[in-house]
């Protein structure tokens, strides 16, 4: 589904990302871990064509990401608050995204209704603008918005940060379900090793922009990751 080859990103002489080859098959739940500055967000930004690669390219479902925009209809993301429109209410925001992704109001309502458990009554019907919601609630709205319109690739940067424990558990269910039941390719990054090993079939460790570990998740993975980062 997503093929990365010879990808690098330099700011002046400072190389922040260098991935020789990385292949993410369709329907995989893929986890990216690494310390601050490892290049996780840079990689996601390149995937979304928000920054230009210095060398190499990413091919998303046969589409060269930095040359064509045709990856947009089947790819969605929630990276940070700049993916929210602060002056809209959550409903208005969902409808806006829905309309951009060719969904009518009924479609959006039906989808959003599935997440009432996840929202915990704090998102819909709040009569508040998104900018006035707490960080955690903003994140909930952003994550669900990224699921509107049946995307085939979903990219979530640090989805567990700022969420309360209940929501974290529910989010894990949602992510697992996306990959298993619907064949969606899910890419997440996280600082929380426990969450990421629980949710992802495959975990890649980035360090100073390079892939240093590529693991198929098993019983031993969490131990291995902890040993790596302790070290």
């Amino acid at each position: 589904m997503i093929t990365t080859s010879n990808l690098s990103k330099k700011y002046n002489e400072n190389e922040v990302l260098n991935i020789e080859a990385l292949e993410i098959p369709k329907g995989q739940s893929f986890g990216l871990v690494g310390n601050n500055g490892a290049g996780k967000t840079t990689y996601f930004s390149l995937l979304l064509d928000l920054i230009q690669p210095t060398t190499g390219a990413i091919i998303n479902n046969d589409i060269l990401v930095n040359e064509s925009e045709d990856w947009k209809p089947f790819t969605s993301a929630f990276i940070d608050e700049s993916f929210l429109i602060g002056y809209l209410t959550a409903e208005e925001y969902f409808y806006f995204i829905g309309e951009l992704r060719g969904q009518n109001k009924a479609d959006v309502d039906a989808l959003v209704a599935q997440f009432s458990n996840f929202f915990h009554g704090e998102i819909l019907g709040q009569k508040k603008y998104l900018r006035d919601l707490s960080k955690g609630n903003q994140k909930k709205a952003g994550i669900v918005a990224a699921l509107i319109g049946n995307p085939e690739v979903v990219i979530l940067d640090e989805p567990f940060a700022n969420l309360d424990p209940t929501t974290q558990i529910r989010l894990k269910e949602i992510i697992k379900n996306l990959a298993k039941a619907k064949g969606v390719t899910v890419l997440i990054s996280s600082h929380d090793l426990m969450h990421v090993t629980e949710v992802c079939e495959r975990i890649v460790v980035l360090e100073k922009g390079e892939v240093v570990k590529d693991l198929a998740t098993s019983e031993a993975t969490l131990k291995e990751l902890e040993a790596h980062f302790a070290g």
């Binding site: 979304l48 928000l50 700049s82 993916f83």
Partner: peptide
Amino acid sequence: YYKLLMSQN
């Protein structure tokens, strides 16, 4: 929210 607009169709 320019990043959002740029990653949408």
